[in-house]
Design a protein around this nucleic acid. Structure first.
Lengths: 395, 395
DNA sequence: GATTTCTTTTTAAAAATTTTAAAAAGATTG
DNA sequence: CAATCTTTTTAAAATTTTTAAAAAGAAATC
């Protein structure tokens, strides 16, 4: 009977997840989305109501027939998720309830992932934040973490950063030390999941999500699911051979896209321009040390600083050339430009579009729509939370 | 009750398809592959035996427990499939039984797909072949056709060739005129399906199949299924911007992979070499008009003609560069080199491997194995048949 | 403006399918 | 060579889906 119980449990969890993503839903809708029959959904939902996880909200407006009953998560069912978003130097953390409201404001620390004991620094930071939040640990579903590097989400390993000495995976190590479920994933994969669950890729099947940040990452939605490749490395967009420049990339190869398109390189170019005495508002902006050069650079772009825009446009054109390749290969219905760099939105689009026009067969290019993310810095945190929710059984 | 009948019918068809692909199978195996329970499989198989579609063959050797009963398609259940493989100038046709044995030797005609009435020529050819085969039309399951061009298999349209005047799809037009079910697909997609069902991609999940032929096509196996993209155009490998040469491609763009890697271009280069008086065995080979220049060129490569090998190596290196991009993006477990050009097998591999080593991050490249197809010219025909089988309900 | 027809949702009974458990047939091991 | 493990097959119980019918509105028609 245990397999049946598990199956019922999974259906309960699936219903809760759907309500987590959709906020509210009717029985018919839940039946269609879970691909389970209505009687089964009805009885499962009634069970969830009895157990206090779900409430009935009343009738929705009719869509042409009998008005459906609407169900949503019980606001008194208090469960929380710790969401962590890391980059090489900075780590952010927040705690969400099941309505995606932050119950702890975003906490930030400087954390150099390449350092030796960085995993333990992370653990201390998370423990500290949980303590600060004053939440009963039994009400925490677990911890979702997004991080750069070669991450195998299934195995819970990061081959690039946060090495742990022991013979267990990083995920298991963190889980053991924090005595909570932990799930990790690559930052670009998470941003793609954020767009799929909450953003511009919602309800679509084949979407490419470009993470314009320190590097240029890619998350691929294939058949409505995140595609990770046979060993979890799919989407290594930034190291495809493309660039005309022969500059050496950090990966050891030449001609990588990353060499010309990462925010890091753009900032370096901007710094060089300032040094060369070029006329740019960056000269004064860079003196303000309260923000990073990257933020200043993006600000300057938004404020139409010509030097910054020109640097960005060069990078964007290269990204567009890379996207042309992706469009030919994947034929996605949409490409979503997300990540920190997507803030520069409108400035980015013309050179990208130009490159696509130049390098794509029109018949193919016209099948793909290009959109900017509306999720900003929160994308990765939201997706880190949903990564945890996705793996929870709500027992 | 009709939906239940349909469901039962589909399961019957699924079992027949599995036996078509696997030749023989046990109840447990069928249950696992159809993801249906054993009791259901048992009763469905018994029904199929009663109806004479399946026979019981006896016991298989034990794998460590009770010996399983083995089932296979009844050789007396005579159904046939017409398989057609087209390229721009030549069309091949054969008729298979459900054991993939040709009951009509491969027939060939010259058929210029770009011509006005080419669809009707095709119809006449198919009708002629069926007549010649002397098979009772009620025993024909239908016709599967592979063809180049922008093919939307779902809609049954080919946007590049074989235009029909009427307001219906090419597939429906052919089906109506031939009064048999017809299914069409892109040649490269079909070759990928051939590898998935009968060749080097069998039992694998994420595989890229490169069709080295007049162009360089790509079929992508993602999660064990052919991926077609959101509008059926995925895998346009040959027109990604990659080449250093600035030559204009037939698609109107510059820098396409196709410009340097298609068999057509290789043959042109070979012809130019002969004209320039270079020392090559092609000079004499080309005088033999019984074979096409392309075949002669491939023969010369296999016979180690230096000029031909050098031309091929240049193209192969470019293909390898393109594959480096694909490996980074898709992270496949295997790449299968298939199509006519794959005959040159061993000559092709070193430059391809060299390009991959040069342009891939080693950690990623080592996840992908490169193999040559063992299916030769028959790949497309076999897959055309399986395309039809896949869509048949065996009523 | 009332009545009929068409949608959509919900409930209840019937049919189909899966699970579970147990039996059968053979392999493996000490 | 008996005892234990595997794998397959069969039978009974439990679950899930289908089907059909009822309920609740919306839209259309007279």
């Amino acid at each position: 009977m245990s397999a049946t119980i598990k199956k019922a449990q999974r259906l309960r969890a699936d219903i809760i997840k759907l309500l987590y993503y959709k906020k509210k839903s009717s029985l018919t809708d839940l039946s269609k989305r879970t691909k389970k029959s209505l009687p089964l959904i009805t009885s499962t939902v009634n069970g969830l109501i009895e157990d206090g996880l779900i409430i009935e909200q009343g009738l929705a407006p009719s869509t042409g027939g009998r008005r459906p009953l609407i169900f949503l998560l019980n606001p008194n069912y208090k469960r929380y998720i710790v969401a962590v978003a890391m980059d090489q130097l900075t780590t952010r953390l927040t705690i969400y309830d099941l309505s995606n409201h932050q119950v702890l404001p975003t906490q930030v620390i400087d954390l150099d992932m390449a350092e030796n004991k960085s995993a333990d620094t992370l653990i201390a930071f998370i423990e500290d934040c949980i303590k600060k939040s004053d939440i009963n640990k039994t009400h925490l579903l677990g911890i979702g973490i997004g991080m750069p590097g070669f991450v195998n989400a299934e195995k819970g390993m990061n081959y690039s950063f946060l090495q742990v000495e022991e013979e267990i995976s990083l995920q298991d190590y963190l889980s053991k030390k924090l005595s909570l479920p932990v799930y990790i994933d690559n930052d670009s994969s998470l941003i793609a999941l954020a767009e799929l669950n909450f953003g511009e890729a919602r309800n679509l099947k084949d979407v490419l999500v470009v993470n314009i940040g320190w590097g240029t990452g890619l998350g691929m939605i294939v058949n409505g699911k995140l595609y990770r490749g046979s060993s979890g490395y799919a989407g290594e967009f930034s190291h495809i051979p493309l660039s005309n420049s022969n500059a050496l990339c950090s990966c050891g190869k030449r001609g990588c896209l990353e060499v010309e398109t990462s925010l890091l390189v753009m900032v370096q170019k901007a710094e060089a321009a300032v040094k060369n005495g070029e006329e740019t508002s960056l000269k004064t902006l860079f003196k303000d040390k309260s923000k990073s050069h990257a933020d200043h650079f993006l600000d300057a772009v938004i404020k139409q600083d010509p030097v910054s825009i020109s640097i960005l446009a060069d990078a964007a054109f290269q990204i567009g050339k890379g996207l042309a390749t992706l469009i030919h290969i994947m034929n996605p219905e949409r490409i979503v430009l997300s990540g920190r760099g997507a803030k520069a939105g409108k400035m980015l689009l013309p050179p990208i579009q130009q490159a696509i026009n130049e390098f794509c067969i029109p018949r193919i290019a016209e099948q793909t729509e290009i959109k900017f993310s509306t999720l900003t810095d929160e994308a990765e945190l939201l997706a880190a939370a949903s990564l945890m929710v996705e793996n929870s059984l709500f027992e």
